[in-house]
């Protein structure tokens, strides 16, 4: 996920062509390796620790849904 620095956060109709005209600010979700690689290249990156519910175990995720989690 990225936006151009000249773009306005929350502006829904930003033309795709303008997206990477400036240096990107990246929010990386999930696999930290991508964030680490970007950071090594000097790209501003914010990492969000995230994993699928129940680590991706579909059976447990379904049970969690039934139990109101």
């Amino acid at each position: 996920m990225a936006r151009s620095e000249s773009g306005t956060a929350g502006q829904p109709n930003l033309p795709a062509g303008q997206l990477l005209q400036g240096p990107p600010v990246v929010v990386n979700v999930g696999l930290k390796g991508f964030a680490d690689e970007l950071a090594l290249q000097g790209v501003k990156v914010v990492h969000v620790e995230w994993q699928p519910p129940a680590g991706g175990d579909a059976k447990l995720a379904a049970l969690l849904a039934k139990l109101g989690a």
Binding site: Q51, P53, A54, G55, L60, L64, L67, G68, A69
Partner: peptide, 8 residues
């Protein structure tokens, strides 16, 4: 326990 399993 629900939150532990859900979030990991």
């Amino acid at each position: 326990v629900r939150l532990v399993v859900e979030t990991g």
